[in-house]
Amino acid sequence: MSERKHRPLAPELEASLPRVDVDDLIAPLKYYVDDDHPHLWIKDPAVCTGCTAKPCLAFCPVGVYRLDRRGQVMVGYQACVECGSCRVGCPFLNIGWALPRGGYGIAYKFG
């Protein structure tokens, strides 16, 4: 497989992206949170420290991955909609991903 040619996004396109508070988007979602069993985890925190891009902070569609005050990646698995992007999108495959236990996690009302 050849490396895909990526042209960088034009700066005016980049600038045209509105800021969105993802917490407003997920507020209406219905979750059954499994308090005792996080189904997402970081396999090796040192790998995240060494990852300069940290694309998970952006591409996760519900903002599960955020930085704490010390710059460490935190995993807010409670907001997860179980899409699977982080498992395969992490450049270092450093995210542990399991299905929530039966009945837990997102329950769409519309879908």
């Binding site: 996004l9 969105v20 993802v22 694309p55 952006a58 999108g89 450049p91």
Partner: peptide
């Protein structure tokens, strides 16, 4: 999305 560091929302 990963490459361009985009937020899908």
């Amino acid at each position: 999305l990963v490459h361009h560091n985009l937020r899908p929302y």
